[in-house]
Protein backbone atom coordinates (compact mmCIF):
# COMPACT_ATOMS: atom_id res chain seq x y z
CA UNK A 1 0.00 0.00 0.00
CA UNK A 2 2.64 2.48 1.09
CA UNK A 3 4.80 1.25 -1.76
CA UNK A 4 2.00 1.87 -4.26
CA UNK A 5 1.45 5.38 -2.94
CA UNK A 6 5.17 6.06 -3.01
CA UNK A 7 5.44 4.81 -6.61
CA UNK A 8 2.49 6.87 -7.78
CA UNK A 9 3.78 10.07 -6.19
CA UNK A 10 7.37 9.64 -7.34
CA UNK A 11 6.13 9.10 -10.89
CA UNK A 12 4.30 12.44 -10.76
CA UNK A 13 6.92 14.76 -9.25
CA UNK A 14 10.07 16.38 -10.58
CA UNK A 15 12.04 15.72 -7.40
CA UNK A 16 11.42 12.07 -6.54
CA UNK A 17 14.16 12.12 -3.89
CA UNK A 18 12.16 14.55 -1.77
CA UNK A 19 9.07 12.40 -1.50
CA UNK A 20 8.47 11.40 2.09
CA UNK A 21 5.57 9.31 3.34
CA UNK A 22 4.77 8.39 6.91
CA UNK A 23 2.19 5.79 7.71
CA UNK A 24 0.19 5.51 10.90
CA UNK A 25 -2.69 3.22 11.70
CA UNK A 26 -5.27 3.42 14.40
CA UNK A 27 -7.92 0.78 14.75
CA UNK A 28 -9.15 0.10 11.22
CA UNK A 29 -8.09 3.42 9.78
CA UNK A 30 -4.85 3.97 7.97
CA UNK A 31 -3.41 7.46 7.61
CA UNK A 32 -0.68 8.57 5.23
CA UNK A 33 1.13 11.84 5.55
CA UNK A 34 2.83 12.95 2.40
CA UNK A 35 5.58 15.50 2.00
CA UNK A 36 7.00 16.57 -1.34
CA UNK A 37 9.40 19.20 -2.61
CA UNK A 38 7.80 22.65 -2.48
CA UNK A 39 7.95 22.92 -6.30
CA UNK A 40 5.95 19.72 -6.63
CA UNK A 41 3.07 20.55 -4.31
CA UNK A 42 0.93 21.86 -7.16
CA UNK A 43 1.61 18.82 -9.29
CA UNK A 44 0.50 16.44 -6.58
CA UNK A 45 -2.66 18.43 -5.87
CA UNK A 46 -3.64 19.09 -9.47
CA UNK A 47 -6.30 21.39 -10.83
CA UNK A 48 -8.95 21.78 -8.13
CA UNK A 49 -7.40 18.86 -6.26
CA UNK A 50 -8.10 16.50 -9.10
CA UNK A 51 -4.81 14.63 -8.83
CA UNK A 52 -4.70 14.18 -5.06
CA UNK A 53 -8.34 13.12 -5.10
CA UNK A 54 -7.53 10.62 -7.82
CA UNK A 55 -4.77 9.19 -5.61
CA UNK A 56 -7.22 8.98 -2.70
CA UNK A 57 -9.76 7.23 -4.91
CA UNK A 58 -7.19 4.65 -6.01
CA UNK A 59 -6.12 4.02 -2.41
CA UNK A 60 -9.73 3.57 -1.41
CA UNK A 61 -10.37 1.25 -4.32
CA UNK A 62 -7.58 -1.16 -3.40
CA UNK A 63 -8.70 -1.36 0.23
CA UNK A 64 -12.37 -1.77 -0.54
CA UNK A 65 -12.70 -5.38 0.61
CA UNK A 66 -10.43 -4.96 3.65
CA UNK A 67 -12.77 -2.75 5.66
CA UNK A 68 -10.07 -0.18 6.38
CA UNK A 69 -10.44 3.53 6.03
CA UNK A 70 -7.60 5.22 4.20
CA UNK A 71 -6.69 8.84 4.62
CA UNK A 72 -4.13 10.83 2.71
CA UNK A 73 -2.94 14.23 3.82
CA UNK A 74 -0.43 16.42 2.03
CA UNK A 75 1.73 18.38 4.45
CA UNK A 76 3.76 21.44 3.73
Amino acid sequence: MKKLLNNIVTALVDNPADVNITESSEGNSLAFELRVHSDDVGKVIGKKGRTINAIRTVLKAVTLDKDTKVMLELLQ
Binding site: A54, V58, A61
Partner: peptide
Protein backbone atom coordinates in the same frame (compact mmCIF):
# COMPACT_ATOMS: atom_id res chain seq x y z
CA UNK B 1 -14.77 7.17 -10.26
CA UNK B 2 -11.89 4.76 -9.61
CA UNK B 3 -11.52 4.09 -13.32
CA UNK B 4 -11.32 7.78 -14.20
CA UNK B 5 -8.89 8.32 -11.30
CA UNK B 6 -6.55 5.68 -12.71
CA UNK B 7 -6.97 7.19 -16.16
CA UNK B 8 -6.02 10.63 -14.85
CA UNK B 9 -2.96 9.44 -12.92
CA UNK B 10 -1.60 7.28 -15.71
CA UNK B 11 -1.95 10.01 -18.30
CA UNK B 12 -0.09 12.42 -16.01
CA UNK B 13 2.73 9.92 -15.54
Amino acid sequence: AAMYAIEHLLSLM
